[in-house]
Structures are given as C-alpha cells and as structure tokens.
Write a protein that binds this DNA or RNA. Structure first.
Ligand SMILES: [Mn+2]
Ligand SMILES: [Mn+2]
Ligand SMILES: [Zn+2]
Ligand SMILES: [Zn+2]
Lengths: 138, 138
DNA sequence: AAAAAGATGCAACAATATTGCATTTTGTGT
DNA sequence: ACACAAAATGCAATATTGTTGCATCTTTTT
C-alpha cells in the first residue's frame, strides 16, 4: 500500500485526492515546504483554503511539524519521529541554507538541553541553524 | 540625554518622532514586539508603512533583532549585545510563554553549540523555547 | 538661511489568511 | 451496491498583512 495512504489511515483521516497529493509532496520533498511551495508545486491546484486546512489537519495529527522562520512564513516538514495528535516530539535541529534556501530536518542531530533561569518551565525547544549546506559549499 | 536619542545618534540615524517613539516602546517593553503590537500600542499612530520601514532600518542597523515564530509573524527585540550594522551577534535563547504569550530574550542564556554533519557550515543559530514563564507558573 | 539628504504619509496595489455556507465526496452500516 | 451521516472541498466575501512610487514635509548639513 502507498505510504501516503498508510499515514492517512493510521491517523483516522479520510482519504481524499488533496490530502494524498499534498502528503506525497512532503514524502518526496528534499526539505521543508512552505504554503507557497505547495501551491506552486501542485500542477493540479487545489483551492488555497484547502491547502490551509490540510496543513492544519496534518499538524494537528502529528503528521507534519512546523519550523519557525523570520520571514513571515511557516515551514512544514514530515514528522519522522513518534509524534502523536496534540503532542509533537520533533526535537531535531533544522538547517536553513542561506544559499539555496532549502530547509533540512537534521533528524540525527538532537536539540541540546539548555539550562533556564529558575521558574521557567520548558515544554518544547526549537533550534534553527542558518548557514551553507552540504550541496552549496565548494 | 535620553536613551533612545543616544541609540539613534550612535547609529547615524536622523532623529524623528516616529523612530523615537518606536524605540521607546522597545526600551520599555517587557518582551519582544510584533509589528501588530506596535501599531496597537502607539496611541499616536503612524502610518503602517512607516512602522515597516522603521523596523527594517532598526534591524539593518543592529538596533533590534528578529525572532522566528510559527505564526506568520516576526518578533523584534532590542539588541543588548554588541550588534553592528549588517551583522548581529544575538546568540541568546528566546523563551515564548504559551500562557501569557510573552516572548523574552534570555540574554544570560547562550545558545549552545551543536555538532552538525560534515559539510554543513553554520553561520547563525537561533533557539526558541516554548513553555511556562516565571510569572505564569503557580 | 538655504540646500541637500532623508523620512513620512498617502494611495494604489499585491499577497496572504480567515470565515460561512452550499455542494461534493468519503466512510459506514445495511 | 445503496442510502445515510459525517466530513472535506470550493467559492465568495472579507480581513489582514506587506510593498511600491511619489509628492510633501522634516532633519541634517553647509
Ligand atoms: Mn523537522
Ligand atoms: Mn533576543
Ligand atoms: Zn544549500
Ligand atoms: Zn507567561
């Protein structure tokens, strides 16, 4: 059975053309995708609204996770960890290449713990490294 | 002399009502501010465009720095470190309280180094911790 | 005080995001 | 296979957010 089907079923989501297509995009993607990437890359285009709602649904169900940025976009990437609905466990570092602009999930690089001042209770930590990626250095 | 004046002069920026007012907002603020906060909090309101341009200017000159988020906004906060025009040195952790929604610069908590896979060259690292802040825990 | 450089506001426009509702599609039980 | 209920989609309208050019006003420099 197709990977995208498996994921949708496992999460109790009904299988629709749009969801399959968008999920396949993520499964095939090199790096993270922004909303705009999805609108561009789907030759057969869905309504913008559907894309918004699909990304929301996937995020809620722990299928994709969000990556914070400083340019008024949100990046999304597949959760490869054991994320559940309502609680993500993506504690890996994200690398944004300033050259090719790709964003890569470094699944093998765990976000280090950090000691916070007394009284601050951490729930989730994100780490974003900007730099030159493997492909772009020469 | 007023703090805001000093900062503007030091950066060779001409002193205008708008810049002073916005800079004072940052100097008084508890945490980081989004564009929308500035529009709301300035009783005397400037044109939206001026706010955009002012934030851009401040960022370019190393007066404020950006904090990435996952909600299609950018947060801005005063640079307390020795940032220069064109090159920031804000290597501190940012804490976002999921309760009161404030974002705090933890100037004393340095972003830890992280070992990247071969071929990846880091330039700048951001760390955002979500959790419950000092004021909100009880 | 005058000139030059720079900042601002306005208007128009572009891009992005949200909501309600009618219609279509999907999953479920027969 | 069929009918029904539940859910997803598209569309339209609206709201929010961001960008650009240009005329005017303000600040800085001479
Ligand atoms: Mn990731
Ligand atoms: Mn900061
Ligand atoms: Zn690259
Ligand atoms: Zn709080």
């Amino acid at each position: 059975m197709e990977q995208s089907l498996i994921i949708l079923k496992k999460n109790g989501l009904s299988v629709t053309g749009g969801r399959k297509k968008i999920l396949d995009l993520f499964l095939d993607a090199q790096g993270a995708l922004a909303h705009s990437d999805i609108e561009k890359n789907t030759s057969v285009s869905f309504d913008r609204v559907t894309v918004y709602r699909t990304l929301q649904t996937f995020t809620d169900n722990g299928i994709i996770h969000q990556i914070p940025t400083t340019d008024n976009t949100i990046l999304y990437a597949l959760c490869k960890d054991k994320c559940e609905a309502g609680h993500h466990h993506d504690e890996h570092v994200h690398f944004i290449c300033v050259d090719c602009d790709k964003t890569i999930c470094m699944d093998e690089v765990t976000v280090p713990d950090v000691k916070l001042p007394k009284g601050f209770n951490p729930i989730q930590t994100a780490m974003i490294v900007k730099g030159i990626c493997n492909d772009c250095r020469n």
